[in-house]
């Protein structure tokens, strides 16, 4: 299982965290990884646009009163994008290799055990991020890296 990158978008549709372990979206640049890189702002917007559209299509086609039709993942020729959205509108996305089929559990874990515990219950961290502001807490970064990053 290879995870290339991890992204969080808030309910205002802004990217509040991005972590890239390899430069999958731009193989021309060499890097050991970036956190909240400025260079990724445009990619974040594009990625969110796609996720948001697909999620809306899923809801439009296939939603029933009993069960929501959620977007779980989509694939391109080179990677798979895994998506989880909390009912409060926090959207988490992982880009992985194609062999990795399902990361729903991992996405929920990051939401429940890392985001909620260390951002939401941390009174020094905002939960409503101003446009342009990002998660920069060291503990959060460390925990996400340990859970999703290369072993």
């Amino acid at each position: 299982m290879t995870i290339f990158s991890f992204w969080i978008f808030d309910r205002h549709c802004n990217c509040i965290y991005s972590r890239e372990w390899t430069q999958v979206l731009n193989p021309a640049t060499e890097s050991s990884g970036t956190i909240n890189a400025k260079a990724n702002e445009d990619n974040a917007k594009l990625l969110f646009g796609v996720l948001f559209s697909l999620r809306n299509i899923a809801r439009k086609v296939g939603d029933t009163p009993e069960q929501e039709n959620t977007l779980n993942s989509f694939a391109t020729a080179k990677y798979r994008a895994h998506f989880y959205e909390s009912p409060s509108g926090l959207r988490l996305c992982i880009l992985s290799d194609l062999e990795t089929q399902n990361l729903q559990t991992q996405l929920r874990d990051v939401y429940s055990n890392i985001y909620v515990e260390h951002i939401v219950k941390n009174p020094l961290s905002p939960v409503d991020f101003k446009p342009g502001s990002k998660i920069t807490n060291q503990r959060f970064i460390r925990l996400v890296d340990r859970y999703l990053g290369p072993q």
């Binding site: 260390h118 941390n122 009174p123 020094l124 961290s125 998660i135 920069t136 807490n137 060291q138 503990r139």
Partner: peptide, 16 residues
């Protein structure tokens, strides 16, 4: 336990 400032440790201590 969960206090961690987005700025740095010094800021964490100051606000704690």
């Amino acid at each position: 336990q969960r206090f961690d400032s987005p700025v740095d440790l010094q800021d964490t201590i100051y606000k704690c």
